[in-house]
Design a protein around this nucleic acid. Structure first.
Length: 230
DNA sequence: GCGTGATCATTG
DNA sequence: CAATGATCACGC
């Protein structure tokens, strides 16, 4: 994504964000790219985050790569979610990286996962593989709060995964752990290492992992949202 | 090098 | 063909 990207000023209220949500519903990625005067990539092979960054720029997200919600002033996290034309999620949703060294005094409520999922603007994009990128269309964006839905599941998933990290067992964690949240590799390649602790509590280097939301959860979220719309 | 934005590619 | 594990670009 690119250097000459124009930025919309950040929304100052939820109401203003909602207004922008109405404006982008139904737009194609090509239309938005035209307005922002950026080029659309042929495919996402070498620009996987392009769509998300395009929408961020268009809606005025400001958090950059800080581990904070995208819309800092109003505490809202933006997540694009690729969906099929039938409305099913096509990918899991990345939330944030997981610290492989325990954070002193960390709890679910103080975690980065909670901070990000506290208030989320979901922007579904119809992204069937056969649809050229510029023709991919934004469906109806909607707001969601984890505290209104399944928070206990997210919390126990977070506790389970965090416990394993605390006991130095991050190397035993696979994507199979967790009902809604899972931990999967998150790095440029398999040679990357980050600092963690082993079972004795000593520092070790290990492959970085990130928290992701399973498609089984976003599928029910989208279904429920679809019911509301119809 | 780390965390952001994610999707790709291989496996079961 | 869904799920897991691996990977790509960017900003700082």
């Amino acid at each position: 994504m690119t250097k000459q990207m124009k930025f919309t000023s950040p929304p100052k209220s939820i109401e203003e964000l909602k207004h922008r949500m109405d404006l982008i519903a139904g737009l194609s990625l090509g239309e938005i790219a035209d307005e922002l005067e950026v080029e659309v990539p042929e495919n996402l092979l070498v620009d996987k985050g392009w769509g998300g960054q395009l929408i961020e720029a268009y809606l005025g997200a400001t958090a950059g790569n800080l581990p904070e919600p995208d819309f800092q002033e109003i505490g809202v996290e933006l997540k694009t979610i690729p969906i099929s034309s039938e409305g099913k999620p096509l990918e899991t949703t990345f939330v944030c990286v997981a610290p492989l060294s325990p954070v002193l005094g960390e709890t679910w409520k103080t975690s980065t996962v909670f901070k990000k999922l506290q208030h989320v603007l979901w922007v579904p994009i119809v992204s069937d593989k056969h649809i050229p990128i510029p023709h991919r269309q934004i469906a109806s964006p909607f707001l969601w709060r984890v505290e209104d839905q399944d928070e206990s599941v997210f919390e126990s998933d977070w506790n389970e995964l965090t416990d394993l990290i605390v006991y130095g067992k991050h190397d035993e964690i696979t994507a199979k752990h967790g009902e809604h949240l899972q931990l999967r590799p998150k790095a440029a390649d398999s040679s990357v290492r980050t600092s963690g602790i082993d079972r004795e509590g000593k520092p070790v280097l290990a492959p970085p992992k990130g928290f992701y939301i399973r498609t089984s959860f976003t599928k029910q979220l989208l279904n429920q949202q679809f019911q509301l719309e119809n």
